[in-house]
Design a protein around this nucleic acid. Structure first.
Length: 777
DNA sequence: GTGTCGTCCTTTTTT
DNA sequence: AGGACGACAC
């Protein structure tokens, strides 16, 4: 188990029981250390499998951890507390729903459900959604919750914010009435439960002697507090993370948690894993050099025993179309060299870039796979089916009610629902609860719908989970609806896939054949019927696990409720054509944690990567740099950085110069396939440049590629009045001082320039308005 | 209740 | 440019 660990990995794995922070660089064997540590703790008898808690951010990494652990030790990992923050909190709340003040059947709102709930709330209270856009309200509420704040604790320093706090309060009341819980609420509730309930807190504090955290740099304030609370009884926290790979600050992750952890817990051990087993030297050194430009770091330098390998290839092309075409040609030659398509990744900063690349790949007939986009459980037809199922569990779930009350249409219109909503408010009940108060024509259809849902709920007491879903799809009219819809073919297939998913789920949970709605008593903490000594892989006698406390509450959940949680917490795969050998397309964010033999990082331009929206603050630029660091370190053997001088964005052609990140990598690691000029090339120069023609000498097929296509615009500049502006030009502004134009967009009087000023940072100015003096270029 | 037209927005995303 | 969503008309 321990063989072939390097000294640092070995030290981390065998650390005595104490708090520890492991700074694990990209490709340094982080997951391996985490799982081997768990196995080691179990095997040496320092912990029982259920005395460990391991927490991750994604279901995928939780699964991987369990799989690897299962491979290391002959134990049944089922029922171990290994999961995502949200998954574990859900488990906690299910087990102690009463103490947490939740109904037994509480359901989980995903982001879209939450937004719908907020829209409904705003409408019901006549809130001006110009002044309070639902998305902003959502962000405010989630932001507060992620800071661990209830409405009373949020500072409201002006009228607008006071109103937001009011809305937060109202939203909370609505959620409670409906028995639903959003993602952030899972964490906050679980935290409050542990904080306020001494016996429960002490039970879990006694139980989990070892808490292991993956991707610690991505934790937010509330998650960190949750961990601290859980470890408050003397448990050891083993936190693994990489501050250089923190790329989720924009959604509340706080890298500062790493430094705080180091300070507050004064961990006796900070271990750095700096040997990289993934990339060749030039790639790794490029990444190191780049990230060294960040000021806010804990510090770490990756090295490799592999040779320096090939230099990083860099190429600048006249346009996004040519960039895509060039990539496709290069991909084709990589494939013809015998490389697997699935080992080639094309990464981009923003999703908007994928279209052009997809188009080029498609035209060339190269199979590709795009990550991101709609996931299985987020599909419209699936959400409809799930809404029926949720109503079966909880008729007061207004979100679900509204989603399907008139889908398929059954003559219940907006007016009827408005009336119903008024009544519900009047009698302080759910929409379902308000049905008896309805009179008139609208009422009869509503009663019919209510009967439908109640009869389905009856079936839930008889039918198994897959049977129930089949029943719902049929009797709700969903099947018929999609059969008659022109493009309903896929949707019908997905609905069938939902039945399959439920079959698999029921088998995994051992509830096959049991009625979907019937409670299944299970003592979750019990892992094995009879804890006994095993013989470990090394012939080691493994002591019987320590006797843990009996659970305070047994988890009682119906197969249906369990399936619904599963659907909310794990949105499912979002990949088309899984399994096929295809070129991988994804955003840099989505690539985190993955690795490929060959990687293309596209759009390495100022304004795009780093993204212009991040340039307003220094912290933003550092996050962009970390993002580039993550991108570079995905590559094992070959790395390409590509950039385009012009690019279609939001229906406008934009011109940009190469990313500053390119200048932060020492040239010795780079091999320019296009001329690297002190200033960006003019397109006219480019089209005729010898370097471009020479590019065929690099072994790419020149056939199939047309001669250099003239750019869509003659020069990369705009003319406003009698002035002609170009990228890279020096300018002077009366107030902002000296600066350089780093990007241009628009035409004539409407054009804008992004200017990097020497003293005041980057500004975007309207050229028709701003008075600029051209100083050079 | 459904279909069409216009308006708005557009960084990154998991649970 | 292109998609999503909301307002309006049939």
């Amino acid at each position: 188990m321990m063989q072939s660990l390097n000294p640092q990995q070995h030290a981390a794995v065998t650390l005595p029981p104490q708090h520890a922070l492991v700074l694990a660089g990209a490709g340094s064997g982080k997951t391996r250390v985490l799982t081997t540590r768990m196995a080691w703790l179990i095997q040496t008898g320092q912990a029982s499998p259920f005395g460990l808690l391991a927490v991750t951010f994604t279901n995928k990494s939780a699964r991987e951890m369990l799989t690897r652990l299962g491979a290391l030790l002959p134990i049944n990992t089922r029922g171990m507390w290994v999961g995502t923050f949200h998954g574990l909190c859900n488990r906690l709340l299910r087990a102690h729903f009463r103490d947490a003040g939740l109904p037994q059947t509480f359901q989980i709102l995903d982001t879209a459900d939450q937004l719908a709930a907020i829209k409904r709330l705003l409408k019901a209270h006549g809130v001006d959604d110009e002044k309070f856009p639902p998305r902003d309200v959502q962000r405010f509420i989630n932001g507060a919750k992620e800071e661990g704040l209830r409405p009373a604790q949020v500072e409201a320093w002006d009228a607008h914010r006071r109103r937001l706090v009011e809305l937060y309060t109202l939203y909370q009341t609505q959620c409670e009435r409906e028995g639903v819980v959003d993602f952030a609420e899972l964490l906050l509730r679980a935290h409050e439960l542990l904080e306020r309930n001494g016996p429960i807190r002490e039970h879990y504090q006694r139980r989990f002697r070892h808490i292991l955290v993956d991707e610690f740099q991505d934790t937010n304030a509330l998650q960190y507090r949750w961990l601290k609370l859980l470890a408050g009884g003397g448990a050891c926290i083993f936190a693994v993370g990489d501050d250089d790979q923190s790329i989720y600050a924009f959604r509340g992750a706080n890298v500062g948690n790493m430094a705080d952890f180091q300070r507050e817990y004064a961990p006796d051990a900070v271990i750095r894993l700096e040997q990289n087993y993934r990339s060749y030297g030039h790639i790794l050194d490029s990444a190191n050099a780049l990230i060294s430009h960040n000021a806010m770091r804990l510090g770490k330098n990756l090295w490799t025993e592999q040779g320096e390998g090939e230099p990083v290839r860099v190429i600048e092309l006249p346009s996004d179309l040519l960039e895509a075409q060039w990539i496709v040609d290069e991909v084709r030659s990589l494939i013809s060299e015998g490389r697997a398509r699935s080992e080639i990744a094309v990464l981009y900063r923003s999703n908007a870039q994928s279209r052009v690349i997809e188009h080029a790949l498609f035209s060339s007939g190269i199979p590709y796979r795009v990550y991101g986009g709609l996931r299985f459980f987020e599909r419209q037809e699936i959400k409809h089916a799930l809404a029926y199922l949720r109503l079966m569990d909880n008729l007061h779930d207004d979100t679900s009610w509204l989603r399907v009350v008139n889908f398929p249409t059954r003559g219940i219109g907006a007016r009827t629902l408005e009336q119903l909503g008024d009544l519900a408010r009047q009698y302080n009940t759910s929409l379902y609860g308000a049905v008896p108060y309805m009179s008139g024509k609208g009422g009869t259809n509503l009663v019919r719908f209510t009967d439908l849902v109640t009869s389905m709920a009856h079936e839930a007491q008889v039918l198994s989970l897959p049977e129930l879903i089949e029943h719902v799809i049929h009797h709700s009219g969903l099947r018929e609806h999609y059969q008659s819809e022109r493009e309903g073919e896929d949707r019908l297939e997905n609905l069938q896939e939902l039945v399959n998913a439920a079959t698999v789920f029921a088998a995994e949970e051992n509830v096959e054949g049991l009625p979907a709605g019937r409670l299944v008593e299970r003592a979750l903490p019990r892992l094995q019927a009879e804890p006994q000594a095993h013989v470990g892989p090394g012939g080691l006698e493994v002591p019987a696990p320590a006797d843990d406390d009996e659970p305070l509450t047994e988890l009682a959940m119906s197969p249906l409720a369990a399936f619904l949680s599963h659907a909310s917490l794990e949105a499912g795969d979002n990949q088309a054509q899984a399994g096929q050998d295809a070129v991988q397309l994804m955003t840099v964010h989505a690539a985190k944690g993955l690795e490929f033999d060959s990687v293309f990082i596209t759009g390495v331009e100022e304004g795009l990567f780093p993204h212009e929206n991040s340039l307003v603050e220094a912290a933003g630029l550092e996050e962009e740099r970390r993002l580039m660091y993550v991108a570079i370190t995905r590559a094992r053997e070959r790395l390409y950085l590509t950039l385009a001088q012009s690019r279609m964005l939001h229906g406008q052609t934009r011109y940009a110069m190469r990313s500053r990140f390119l200048d932060e990598i020492p040239q010795e690691h780079l091999k320019w396939l296009s001329p690297r000029e002190a200033r960006p090339l003019q397109m006219a120069e480019w089209a005729g440049s010898a370097a471009y023609r020479r590019s065929d000498a690099f072994g790419r097929p020149s056939a199939g590629r047309s001669a250099p296509v003239p750019p869509r615009t003659a020069t990369s500049g705009v003319t406003v009045g009698d002035q002609h502006f170009r990228i890279g030009q020096g300018v002077r502004h009366s107030r902002f001082g000296e600066g350089t134009i780093i990007s241009l967009s628009g035409m004539g009087q409407d054009s804008q320039a992004q200017i990097q000023f020497r003293d005041v940072g980057t500004k975007t100015l309207a050229l028709g308005v701003a008075k600029l003096e051209i100083t050079s270029g």
